[in-house]
């Protein structure tokens, strides 16, 4: 037909690729969704960078609240943990120390769930020791390796895990895999969607222990979580593991000590977290492991 006597079949090839994609991209921008035979046509998440990040002016950044760590509590911690706590005090994220309402639970024993990326895999063992010491029950650890906020926000996995384990307190550790992300606006949107999923549950959101400078992901999470729920770990000086990307076992212990100090005294949702007498106790609850990374050949 068209191609038989066509002088420029390459033009036709170009159109064959562009027109369907243009329709897909355009549909992405439509205000409503289409249905065919009762099935909703999903929209393409512009993850590949066609929609760039919207850079926020400094004045646009919403000020929120991050609690300072209680000085008395620091005395209970080991010296090495104290060192990092001191560094923490200079963190950029303590932008406003205005009061926010603390919600102290009536329960002394909580059903604790920890979820997050690979760093959660290291923290969960430390958290387990804290839970045993303080009479909480670590109901499950959900380690989603290589996952980003997009996975946590848009897959229904988090909802299903919450439904299954019915936690009364959640620790969320995410962000290591998107330190270089520049599409901050999109990730902030996802962070807000995730914060919405956690509504009604007491939670603390732990920022990634990054060894490299991030492009604003910490700030995006910080401004998405409820005031007093975000713990910024970005300036902590934790010993590195062999991969130079994650903390080593000692690093995880120091990190958890710092988190525990903050969460037990100064977080919006405080949780009793006295330092465990016995460490490295085995986890008896489920560790759910997923991997979000794509196979990319060699």
């Amino acid at each position: 037909m068209f191609l038989k006597n066509n002088k420029s079949p390459i033009f036709f090839s170009a159109l064959s690729l562009i027109v369907p994609l243009l329709l897909i991209f355009t549909y992405n921008y439509l205000g409503h969704t289409l249905k065919i035979g009762g099935i909703t046509l999903k929209k393409f998440l512009m993850e590949e960078g066609l929609i760039a990040n919207e850079k926020k002016k400094p004045s646009d950044v919403k000020k929120t609240y991050l609690a300072k760590i209680n000085e008395e509590k620091k005395q209970q911690l080991k010296e090495d943990s104290l060192k990092i706590v001191t560094q923490k005090d200079s963190a950029n994220f303590i932008v406003d120390t205005s009061k926010f309402e603390q919600f102290i639970s009536q329960n002394s024993e909580e059903r604790v769930l920890i979820m997050g990326d690979s760093e959660c895999g290291g923290l969960c063992k430390q958290l387990n020791d804290y839970c045993i010491q303080n009479g909480h029950k670590l109901v499950a650890s959900f380690v989603w390796n290589s996952a980003t906020i997009l996975n946590f926000a848009y897959a229904d996995t988090v909802t299903q895990i919450i439904k299954k384990y019915k936690p009364t307190y959640i620790f969320l550790v995410v962000g290591l895999n998107e330190l270089y992300a520049k599409d901050i606006a999109k990730r902030k949107k996802a962070a807000m969607a995730l914060a919405k999923k956690l509504e009604g549950i007491r939670y603390s959101w732990i920022g990634p222990a990054n060894y490299v400078k991030d492009y604003g992901i910490n700030n995006a999470f910080f401004t998405s979580a409820l005031p007093g729920t975000f713990f910024s770990s970005k300036d902590l000086n934790l010993p590195k593991g062999s991969d130079n990307r994650h903390p080593n076992t000692e690093g995880y212990r120091m990190w958890m000590d710092t988190i525990a100090s903050w969460v037990s005294t100064s977080a919006k949702y405080p949780l009793q977290m006295n330092e465990p007498i016995k460490r490295k106790q085995g986890i008896k609850s489920k560790i759910i492991s997923l991997n979000a990374s794509k196979y990319r050949g060699y």
């Binding site: 420029s8 390459i10 033009f11 090839s13 170009a14 159109l15 064959s16 690729l17 562009i18 994609l21 243009l22 897909i24 991209f25 393409f44 590949e48 960078g49 066609l50």
Partner: peptide, 15 residues
């Protein structure tokens, strides 16, 4: 998808 889209435009120039 973004690459295929780009490739489509590239084909115009190639033609």
């Amino acid at each position: 998808f973004s690459f295929i889209f780009l490739f489509g435009f590239f084909l115009f120039g190639y033609a």
